[in-house]
Simulated assay, not measured.
Amino acid sequence: MPQIALITGGSAGIGQAAAFAAAERGFGVIFTYYRHQAEARETVQKIEAAGGGAAELYLDVADTNSFAQFYGSVEQILRDKWKTSKLHALVNNAGIGGGAAFEDVTEESFDQFHQVLFRGPYFLTQRLLPLLADGGAIVNTGSNSALVSGVEAGYSSYASQKAGLHLLTRYWAKELAPRQIRVNAVAPGSTRTRIVDDIFTRMPEVIPPVVETVPFGRLGEPEDIGKVIVFLIDDASAWVTGQVIEASGGQGL
């Protein structure tokens, strides 16, 4: 019987790459989507065509009132598709991005970052804890913008929520240790995703200045981060907990 991983925000970008990598490692995968249902279905089809097992579910991570119903849907999929009642791993990856000068940040935009990047993952994880098996794993997708290596003007609102998620990772690791649940975070650097309305496709001119800050001389790809996430949910990292792992190609060195 496969171990099952639940990945939020898995229809594209880092979450999708993590879903593919997890399936290749033998995990069954449940992942969520928000706007891109067709891409979610296509992701399931690709995983199943490669011999894996996957299912997609709609989730608005900012809508905490929907979490009880979401819990029931996850419980049903586990039972019907994999004949199990437990998740092995939860990956809090769904997110939004964007920047604004401190003096231009609005309460509305700040609250949106808070709801999606911090409040949502906090209460979703709390709600799903009964489904998470003892000895399982939680991975939070943070950001190197919340680390010294990634500080740039214009991201105080976004990065402060990611910093909170990094700190929360350590607290959860402490509190869930009696259940042998490992909790870690991955902190990506600049990665080619659809974040900020697919900025790297819309505005390719922003890429060269970013690449100049990366010793490896390129943007990160979703697959670069997905592999780290899967390492952190796999038993290969069974002695790792409470850590924030930067995956940025050395950005800022």
Rank of each mutant, 00 (worst) to 15 (best):
Phe102Ser: 10
Ser66Thr: 15
Gly217Val: 12
Leu6Lys: 08
Leu59Val: 01
Ala146Leu: 01
Leu6His: 10
Tyr33His: 06
Gln180His: 13
Ala54Lys: 01
Pro208His: 04
Gln76His: 13
Ile96Asn: 14
Gly13Cys: 11
Asn93Leu: 11
Ala5Thr: 11
Leu6Ser: 07
Ile47Glu: 05
Thr106Gln: 09
Ala153Met: 06
Ala133His: 01
Ala38Glu: 15
Ala23Pro: 03
Asn144Cys: 04
Ala40Thr: 01
Thr213Pro: 04
Glu152Pro: 00
Pro208Arg: 02
Ile199Phe: 14
Thr241Val: 07
Pro178Thr: 13
Ala40His: 00
Arg79Pro: 00
Arg35Leu: 15
Phe200Arg: 03
Lys162Pro: 00
Gly226Ala: 10
Asn140His: 15
Glu205Lys: 09
Pro209Val: 09
Ser145Arg: 05
Pro208Ile: 05
Asp197Gly: 12
Lys227Tyr: 05
Ala146Val: 00
Thr213Ala: 14
Thr169Arg: 04
Pro204Phe: 07
Val183Gly: 12
Asp134Cys: 05
Lys162Tyr: 06
Val148Ser: 15
Leu232Thr: 00
Gln112Gly: 00
Val91Trp: 01
Glu48Cys: 07
Ser156Phe: 10
Tyr171Leu: 11
Gly135Arg: 06
Phe102Ile: 14
Arg170Trp: 02
Val74Tyr: 09
Gln69Thr: 15
Val74Leu: 13
Lys46Trp: 05
Gln3Cys: 05
Gly28Val: 02
Ile181Val: 15
Pro188Ala: 09
Gln126Phe: 02
Gly52Met: 08
Lys86Glu: 08
Glu39Gln: 06
Lys174Asn: 13
Phe67Asp: 03
Gly99Asp: 11
Ser156Gln: 11
Val148Asp: 11
Pro215Arg: 11
Gln45Met: 00
Ser11Met: 04
Thr43Gln: 03
Val210Pro: 03
Gly28His: 03
Ala236Tyr: 00
Gly53Gln: 12
Ala101Cys: 08
Phe31Trp: 02
Ala19Val: 13
Gly15Trp: 04
Asp234Leu: 02
Arg194His: 14
Arg192Ala: 11
Ser157Pro: 12
Asp111Glu: 14
Glu103Gln: 12
Val74Cys: 12
Leu128Asn: 08
Tyr33Pro: 04
Arg182Ile: 13
Gln69Leu: 13
Phe27Pro: 00
Leu131Ala: 09
Gln37Met: 06
Glu56Arg: 01
Met203Ala: 13
Arg218Asp: 08
Leu147Asp: 02
Lys86Arg: 10
Glu39Thr: 04
Pro204Arg: 09
Glu175Pro: 12
Glu75Tyr: 12
Pro188Phe: 09
Lys83Gly: 07
Leu165Phe: 04
Phe110Ala: 15
Tyr33Glu: 03
Leu232Arg: 00
Ala12Asn: 14
Ile7Arg: 04
Thr141Ala: 06
Tyr71Asp: 14
Phe102Asn: 09
Ala187Lys: 04
Ser248Ala: 14
Gly252Val: 01
Pro222Phe: 05
Ala19Ser: 15
Leu57Asn: 02
Val91Pro: 03
Tyr155His: 11
Gly26Ser: 10
Gly249Lys: 02
Val211Met: 10
Leu87Thr: 03
Gly252Trp: 00
Val183Gln: 12
Ser190Phe: 11
Gly9Ile: 13
Tyr155Val: 07
Leu167Val: 04
Leu78Ala: 08
Pro204Tyr: 07
Gln16Ser: 14
Lys227Asp: 08
Ser157Trp: 11
Ala49His: 10
Thr84Gln: 15
Asp235Asn: 11
Thr32Ala: 06
Ile96Gly: 13
Gln45Glu: 06
Ala17Phe: 13
Lys46Tyr: 07
Gly15Asn: 07
Val206His: 01
Tyr71Gln: 15
Ala100Val: 01
Asp80Asn: 12
